[in-house]
């Protein structure tokens, strides 16, 4: 009788599993509700908005693919903002990732004061973005800025960084380097995870520092490089504040990026539906590129330590 009442091990395991499942869903429920309510919900509504004529005040009217057709066939400004955004991504992602890697590599060595430099390099990442941008406006000032002063010492007449369409985008890319502190810290954590025995063995085998970097550091750091690269790419595609504060998209729309396009069309021109469509185009582009990068980098990324 007692044996009959006893639960079988499989049944017990099933109960525990079910209880764990319930606990799991209870624990993630607050986040899940927030995610559904504040992320998926607005995304779906914006998809409906993208398929509608919508001024943000009155109710949307369904117009099918009209907004997407106009965006992708007629709108020259959208194309310009897309090209400018790509320019920014292409210039800013490699430079910021390489600088972060370089700084992390330098700070990984056991020098006195390395901790202080970590704080200094990370500081702009925790500072208010707007304040940092305004400081950079002064650094780039063509008459009083430090860059043109330093160039003048070398006998070079510096450009009008933010007022010249040829220099405005490079100026924003240079400014972006200030914010490589977060990537640097992640790289630093990645570097510290690499076992020192590998380097000791390589040194005994006579491998040079460059060879050690190429054959040990880079392969073992590749997941971190991929992560930082994708995060930098997503962040760069979403550029908005930098262009708004430093140049307002100018001069001659040379820094007019998709973030500004989406903002202007929604809040300045009252074309919310059109703005939603532009957001979805940006989202799809970003998703395709991220998937492509992850797929293409698959055989180059080493997840085994």
């Amino acid at each position: 009788m007692g044996e009959a009442r006893a639960k079988s091990p499989r049944r017990t395991a099933g109960i525990i599993q079910r209880r764990n499942d319930i606990n799991f869903y209870i624990c993630i429920l607050p986040w899940l509700l927030g995610f559904l309510g504040f992320t998926i919900g607005p995304m779906l509504y914006s998809l409906y908005g993208a398929l509608s004529k919508w001024d943000g005040v009155t109710a949307p009217t369904f117009v099918g693919m009209n907004n997407f057709i106009r965006l992708l066939t007629f709108d020259e400004l959208f194309k310009k903002s897309l090209v400018n955004t790509f320019k920014y991504v292409i210039l800013s992602v490699p430079t910021s990732v390489l600088l972060a890697l370089f700084l992390a590599f330098m700070l990984n060595s056991k020098h006195k004061g390395a901790g202080i430099f970590q704080v200094i390099f990370y500081f702009p990442s925790v500072s208010a973005g707007i304040a940092v941008y305004i400081v950079w406006i002064w650094l780039f000032n063509s008459e009083l800025g430090i860059f043109n002063y330093l160039l003048s010492i070398l006998g070079i007449s510096g450009p009008n960084w933010l007022g010249d369409p040829r220099w405005s985008m490079p100026a924003i890319v240079i400014m972006n380097l200030t914010f490589c502190g977060s990537s640097m810290l992640i790289f630093l954590a990645g570097l510290k995870q690499i076992p020192t025995q590998y380097y000791e063995a390589a040194t005994i085998d006579g491998a040079s520092a460059a060879r050690q970097f190429r054959s040990i550091t880079l392969p073992l750091l590749s997941p971190t490089i991929l992560f930082n690269g994708i995060m930098a790419m997503i962040g760069s595609f979403q550029i908005f504040g930098q262009a708004l504060i430093l140049t307002e998209g100018g001069p001659i729309q040379s820094t007019y990026v998709m973030g500004l396009f989406i903002y202007d069309y929604a809040f300045l021109y009252g074309k919310f539906g059109y703005s939603c469509a532009a957001s979805w185009v940006q989202f799809v582009i970003l998703m395709i590129i991220s998937l492509f990068v992850m797929k293409a980098s698959g055989k180059h990324v080493n997840y085994v330590m």
Partner: peptide, 25 residues
């Protein structure tokens, strides 16, 4: 006025055209 289509024309047509002319790009 600087809202709606007028703002679009101000920002996306007149301003860049005038900048292009006066900055001699």
């Amino acid at each position: 006025w600087n809202c709606g289509t007028i703002a679009e024309i101000n920002s996306n047509v007149i301003e860049p055209a005038v900048e292009k002319l006066l900055l001699q790009v």
